[in-house]
Design a protein around this nucleic acid. Structure first.
Lengths: 115, 115
DNA sequence: CAAATACATAACCAAACGGTTATGCAAACG
DNA sequence: CGTTTGCATAACCGTTTGGTTATGTATTTG
């Protein structure tokens, strides 16, 4: 199957290596080698993970010279977050916890101005 | 691999059939047959999807007589939502959109009292 | 210009996935 | 009490996933 956008996003997020890559990318754009450094994987394995993230629309690649820079695209993450938020609504107690978390995170971010 | 909890949750969410099941379960607990009705799949295929959701901790089964009732557990959804929210923070524009969405959804839910 | 760097791509492999049909079995029904 | 209902489980199958090694190819660098 795998036609749906959300399928690709959630599937991309279902691997700890790829989530780790996104976490690292949150600190800013990097090239593939730097992105690969923390992981004990062959270089082609890294390339494959990058492609899965790209296919899900979660990242963009831009080739500059011999290096390939990766930067994150948040749109699909919002779709995924939106889906979760919508269904989380139906279980109020937990929903409140998520909402509070988001509000607090937002407040923090607003306060310290993202570096 | 697949050791991580989040792996299992996101992987469970990566299939449209399973997301559809969760959506239906949001209306309340059902037995497996009722849950299966909307999907054009064999009964064993449904059982497999249910097991994937169970393994991810997203649902609970309770056998009553010959029927097996399914009910949702929101905890893991929160973990997943939390992960997304945390990294969404780093891309502010989109984060704001999610936050607004959540706030509006929360307001709606508070207003109309979940039936 | 030769060598090293930063990748991508191909080919291969075992394991997991998502589906199927077949079978079994306990509970409810008539 | 025989039959239907509501499942679970097993066995099988093609495809996808996630890893590997090997190879190719631009782009720097010395």
């Amino acid at each position: 199957m795998q036609t749906n956008d959300l399928d690709l996003v959630f599937q991309a997020l279902s691997d700890a290596t790829r989530r780790g890559m996104l976490a690292k990318l949150a600190e800013g754009e990097t090239n593939v080698s730097t992105l690969a450094a923390p992981f004990d994987l062959s270089q082609p394995a890294i390339s494959k993970h990058v492609r899965v993230l790209e296919r899900a629309g979660l990242i963009e690649k831009e080739k500059r010279g011999r290096e390939n820079f990766i930067r994150v695209k948040a749109g699909p993450l919002d779709e995924a977050g939106g889906w979760i938020a919508r269904y989380a609504e139906f279980w109020r107690a937990q929903f409140d916890a998520v909402d509070d978390y988001l509000k607090q995170t937002k407040a923090d971010a607003a306060g310290k101005e993202h570096r």
